[in-house]
Design a protein around this nucleic acid. Structure first.
Lengths: 214, 214
DNA sequence: TTGACATTCAAACGTTCGTTTTATACAAAC
DNA sequence: GTTTGTATAAAACGAACGTTTGAATGTCAA
């Protein structure tokens, strides 16, 4: 083989780093723990990524962004055969893409946990998360929904609605342990369906608030 | 004076520990940083609290719970002269209690950040947060709202609505930097008013989804 | 004044951390 | 065959960590 395994170690480190950073947080994970889980040498992190923070940013650039792309693709594929999707179709597609989409339960949790960490404790990755992901996705959602709203709909209020819907969806993902305790049962398939249903109908009704401004 | 300052050091440590734990997270803060900010000796933490984790739990028990109590009091005082408050009055009071209530901007941020950290990365304080605060508060909100809903309203769906409204409200607090970037301006008084208005109207409309179940 | 107790302090404990260094293995290039 | 470059390995670095120790200080009752 010419290129047998160019960089298997690097990929294994990224995998384990994403998992551990998501579960425990940046400071709570040591390089030794990551390289141990990745079956590689301690110095491999510094060889492939320079230092720990660069590995953290690498997780976002080479893993997290990829997951984001898959969620977005799933979202648009749900609307592919609908040239002019209705609002409930858009909202439903978004809820399904996040809660029942292309990611496994574990992947989805890690994905949102990493994002969550940057949102509540802004670090070096927040700018990228907002500018490269949240801003364009928010705008796409607005553009899909706006044709179905009154022409004089306030742009600022529409933005707040989109943020609310996404925030609600994220909340049901990363606060899963608390939600389970509050609801009295865990996240089985039936409950996930109920969640998607709830988010869709609640958000759909919430959006009607836009039609009643003075 | 008989009891001049029984334990001033202990209180200063709790103050600084809450601030630093909220801003940086548990693992990112060292005992040396806390005692330095509190102008006390390094060993004071271990003398007054035993160890670092006990100090963290102490922050929740002796600071965070107190803040929760003040928010709840503010909420109920808004409804004090209304024996049978309407749904918009309840929702509005909740949004104001969280976003414009008795806490300073800094206090509110720290309060929600601490809570947020436990929700997204469950630790030893999550059980207390959910059982002593979220469960009773959720129930009180449900009891206030239910009289104004159809009698056959599904209890489970109502719970989901309450969680959604609280989640939305929390989201606008702890994700403030991201929201600012998405909205294009910062959290001044005018924007906070707009937020309260938005949350109230969006949640009110969202609740109407409960009336249309099969 | 003495004794007992509570609190503060400086110093050190052993451990773990991120990072660096040095050496080794192995491929392709000359 | 030698050189060059890439990847992994073991060992060590100084710094910072949480925690413990034992002496010093202050307070109040006897």
């Amino acid at each position: 083989m010419t290129q047998p395994t160019t960089d298997n170690t690097r990929e294994r480190i990224l995998d384990q780093a994403e998992r551990l950073f998501a579960v425990k947080g940046y400071e709570a994970v040591s390089i030794r723990e990551i390289t141990g889980a990745a079956d590689s040498n301690l110095a491999a992190v510094n060889y492939h990524f320079g230092n720990k923070m660069n590995l953290y940013l690498g997780v976002f650039h080479e893993r997290w962004l990829e997951r984001t792309r898959r969620i977005r693709e799933n979202f648009f594929s749900q609307l592919a055969d609908k040239p002019e999707p209705t609002v409930p179709e858009v909202i439903g597609a978004m809820a399904r893409a996040f809660l029942d989409g292309p990611l496994s339960d574990e992947e989805r949790l890690h994905h949102v946990q990493l994002m969550q960490r940057e949102l509540s404790h802004p670090g070096d990755a927040l700018k990228m998360v907002v500018e490269e992901v949240m801003l364009p996705y928010n705008q796409q959602l607005r553009d899909l929904i706006r044709p179905n709203l009154p022409k004089n709909t306030d742009e600022e209020r529409l933005r707040l609605c989109i943020i609310s819907i996404l925030g609600m969806t994220l909340y049901f993902t990363f606060a899963r342990p608390a939600v389970s305790m509050l609801m009295g049962h865990d996240y089985n398939d039936q409950f996930k369906s109920l969640l998607i249903e709830h988010i869709t109908s609640f958000a759909l009704k919430g959006l009607t608030a836009l039609k009643e401004e003075k």
